[in-house]
Design a binder for these strands. Structure first.
Lengths: 168, 168
DNA sequence: TTTATATCATTAGTATACTAATGATTAGTA
DNA sequence: TACTAATCATTAGTATACTAATGATATAAA
């Protein structure tokens, strides 16, 4: 059985969610290609390195929270990075449940070229756009994120369940 | 060996790429939760349904292009949706390589509640933001996407390789 | 102090993304 | 026409995301 009804249309092109997602995908693709080509690291590895440059010795849980993924998702990423010699797990002496993660000199030496990639993407992405429009966009997106988080938290407060989001 | 050097810092918070990605993730999470709770479909299923509502009978390749994923990625998504009775593969009579995909009445009947979810997210995300800021943001993001695609295409033209982006 | 609860990292299972390779079929060229 | 190219859907292999469950440990409560 196949539908023949005329359906209500949804205006994707003018939806902020749609446009934000398209733009995010464009950033991810360009940046990932740039990082692989020039540095030999992936986008998810950039995120971990960027976090640890600011705060060395974070636990896996802390890194996951800052990057915005689940702890379980981070495990194989850390596994691979440790195998590739980009970082090292160090068991904490006072709390044996946790690992503290430290970048190796190899990762350190790659950090500058990673930043160059980031700045290159940043420069090209902003071509022919006024600085004031960039600032308005940044501020608007920050407000939107805050609104969405508040909306999700609202749901959680009404019925106090565990976690309920799945990305697939 | 562990790094002790003072590293150059990268200003994530003021990077458009970082903020766009954070916002996209917030949209994806809220919308996915909303769709599952109220309709029982996933975000990727919403994308496929939304595409087919506008143009019934697209091939898998065409859907993949519109959604912005690879054809291979779409296969298991279509598999699952067919199994769940949301759509049907129909072999094309004049070109036996392709399937044409049609929504079932079941999917049609869910479309309105999907739109309600989308509008709900949209309303909450825009709370306390002026319409003119939303419009500037939309226009700026469209320009950024265009710039990034142009930048990627530039790379491809210089060295005519196959495809080179990988999302991990 | 003993018991219950919470936390961290890991594993298992599933979904979604990619590339590369395959088979079937079509289109283009010699 | 026959041969080569290209195209579509699929499969296999890998990476990244999630939830749920596990074991080890730490904290809180009785």
């Amino acid at each position: 059985m196949i539908s023949t009804l005329s359906m209500i249309k949804y205006d994707f092109e003018n939806s902020v969610g749609f446009v934000v997602n398209t733009t995010a995908k464009a950033f991810q693709r360009s940046f990932d290609v740039e990082l692989r080509k020039n540095v030999g690291v992936s986008l998810s590895q950039w995120r971990v390195v960027g976090t640890l440059v600011l705060q060395p010795g974070l636990t896996q849980k802390e890194i996951a929270d800052k990057v915005g993924i689940e702890g379980a998702t981070l495990v194989p990423i850390i596994d691979k990075m440790e195998k590739e010699g980009l970082l090292k797990r160090k068991p904490d002496s006072s709390d044996r449940r946790i690992n503290r993660i430290y970048l190796t000199p190899k990762a350190d030496s790659l950090w500058e070229s990673m930043i160059e990639c980031a700045l290159r993407i940043r420069k090209h992405s902003a071509k022919n756009i006024s600085e004031s429009d960039i600032q308005i966009t940044l501020e608007t997106l920050r407000k939107i994120s805050k609104n969405l988080v508040a909306f999700s938290d609202l749901d959680k407060t009404i019925i106090p369940v565990k976690k309920t989001h799945r990305m697939n």
